[in-house]
Simulated scan of single mutants.
Amino acid sequence: MRNLLNLLVTLLVFWIGNQYFNQYISISDTKTLILATVLMFVISLIYGLLLTISFVSIVVGIGCLTTPLLIAASLVLTPIKLLLLDKYLSGFDIHGFWTYVILTIVLSIFTVKVKSKSE
């Protein structure tokens, strides 16, 4: 359920950016909008899988090296995803450094996190 909400939030952020801030972010058509959203979602799932594998591999000793690197990468993961979409997805264009910064902040604020239950 959390992943579906994150997918919808990303779709909404991209759509609002395209509709109201089209001088900073431009998406050519609905197909590109949906493809960009799905690619952001897939990259996040792959990162989550890598992080899980890294945590599990701590027992073997390899995770002690990979886990800190993946945690550090999480700080810049959203801008990297946006940069990859801008570079490789035709019809998806982000204009300017500050647009990356603002999109990263907006996507981070509206990303749904799982609350842990305190006992």
Rank of each mutant, 00 (worst) to 15 (best):
S116D: 13
I25F: 05
S26E: 08
T52F: 12
L82H: 15
V76A: 07
T66S: 03
I105Q: 02
G48Q: 14
L69D: 09
D93E: 14
N18K: 06
S90H: 11
L49E: 15
L8P: 12
S108M: 05
T99M: 01
N22L: 01
V13D: 09
A72S: 10
K81Q: 14
L84D: 10
L12K: 07
I71V: 10
Y47S: 04
L50K: 15
I25K: 10
D86R: 03
G61F: 03
P79A: 02
I62G: 08
G96C: 02
N6S: 01
L84T: 12
S118G: 09
G48V: 03
F41V: 06
T30I: 03
I71R: 11
V106A: 03
S116V: 05
N3F: 03
M40S: 14
T66H: 04
N18L: 00
N3E: 04
H95K: 09
G61M: 00
I34A: 09
Y100R: 04
L51E: 15
V114E: 11
I105C: 00
L5C: 06
F55S: 07
D86C: 00
S44Y: 12
V38P: 12
T10H: 06
L11P: 12
T10E: 06
A72F: 10
S118Q: 12
G96T: 02
Y20T: 01
P79M: 00
T78K: 03
S28N: 11
Y47R: 13
